[in-house]
């Protein structure tokens, strides 16, 4: 299969089950909402060493946020609900609460909830108060509506929702862009990232959405769980069992975490199509032979 003269390899991306939460971070203006979101999703590229994977899903207009201020939607993924709870506590507590003018709301309706605001409220040292925001006419006592915690801070008040919904999600959707040189490969990757921004329910957790140091799950060193993806490193192509075709001198990877299979498929589809520009030789995908991940995203099936 070829798109714009670029070969689409008959390969599949291997992805894993994860748990995800969505935060809606609002602030006095878009700039401060974005600052909070960027800090919250910082050092969250890979669960291997960061504890979670996170990214900015998109901006939320003020008429869609609970407090009518400009917002940013953030998705955070972890391997289980316990790890996700730990990461939400740390990131909302240290990155959102500390950021001027922000508030933090749940953005995921789910029966499974983590009581993040309920735990963070103790920062108020006894002066925290809650408000049960009515949402409809059917609620009976505290069973309906959204409970918000008001935590007094030096600037005024930090408002955080008591519970955050979490759901099953998928991490590790990916594709590899194999190019003639680093300039064209980066250009293709940037076009892919730009195109994928419009897809809801996914984030690209790596810097700028792009990975240059893809990994494999083995290493010659016993103390290391992962090491560089030798098969795709051009500088050692003749020293290893290389997967690089002739003419390829640079590989960049796009990793996608999503709330469901369909959104990852859609993100891969638009991303690959955007990446197929002159100077790109092949699009491939990273997998572990199908033995580790529960989800397989076949490139030709997605683009077919």
């Amino acid at each position: 299969m070829y798109i714009n003269g670029v070969e689409i390899e008959d390969a599949f991306a291997e992805a894993f089950k994860m748990r995800a939460a969505r935060l809606i971070i609002t602030a006095v203006n878009p700039r401060w909402a974005l600052i909070a979101a960027q800090v919250t999703t910082g050092f969250a590229t890979s669960v291997i060493a960061c504890g979670c994977e996170a990214g900015i899903e998109g901006t939320v207009p003020r008429d869609e946020t609970p407090d009518g201020r400009p917002g940013v939607s953030v998705l955070i993924f972890a391997m289980g609900s316990k790890q996700l709870e730990d990461q939400l506590m740390r990131r909302i507590g240290q990155c959102v609460m500390t950021c001027a003018t922000t508030a933090c709301f749940n953005g995921l309706e789910s029966d499974e909830k983590l009581k993040i605001g309920k735990a963070l409220r103790y920062f108020g040292d006894g002066f925290q108060t809650s408000k049960l925001l009515p949402s409809g006419i059917t609620e009976d006592r505290g069973k309906g509506g959204r409970r918000l915690w008001r935590i007094p801070v030096m600037e005024g008040e930090f408002l955080v929702e008591e519970s955050f919904g979490i759901q099953r999600a998928i991490g590790g959707g990916n594709f590899l862009i194999l190019g003639e040189n680093s300039t064209l490969t980066l250009e293709a990757a940037e076009k892919a990232v730009e195109a994928m921004k419009v897809v809801k329910g996914v984030v690209l957790p790596f810097p700028g959405g792009i990975v240059r140091s893809g990994s494999k799950t083995t290493s010659k060193y016993k103390f290391l769980r992962a090491s560089t993806n030798t098969a795709y490193c051009p500088t050692i192509r003749n020293q290893t069992d290389s997967a690089l075709p002739e003419g390829v001198n640079c590989v960049l990877e796009i990793v996608i975490d999503g709330l469901d299979e369909e959104s990852i498929r859609e993100a891969m589809r638009v991303g690959i199509q955007a990446a197929c520009i002159p100077g790109i030789v092949r699009i491939s995908a990273g997998n572990y032979g199908g033995t580790l991940g529960q989800y397989h995203f076949h490139l030709r099936e997605i683009l077919g």
Partner: peptide, 15 residues
């Protein structure tokens, strides 16, 4: 106490 902009009040008013 102070003069401030209560964010929680915005949520109520919008509801």
């Amino acid at each position: 106490d102070c003069r401030f902009q209560p964010t929680f009040l915005r949520c109520y008013l919008l509801q």
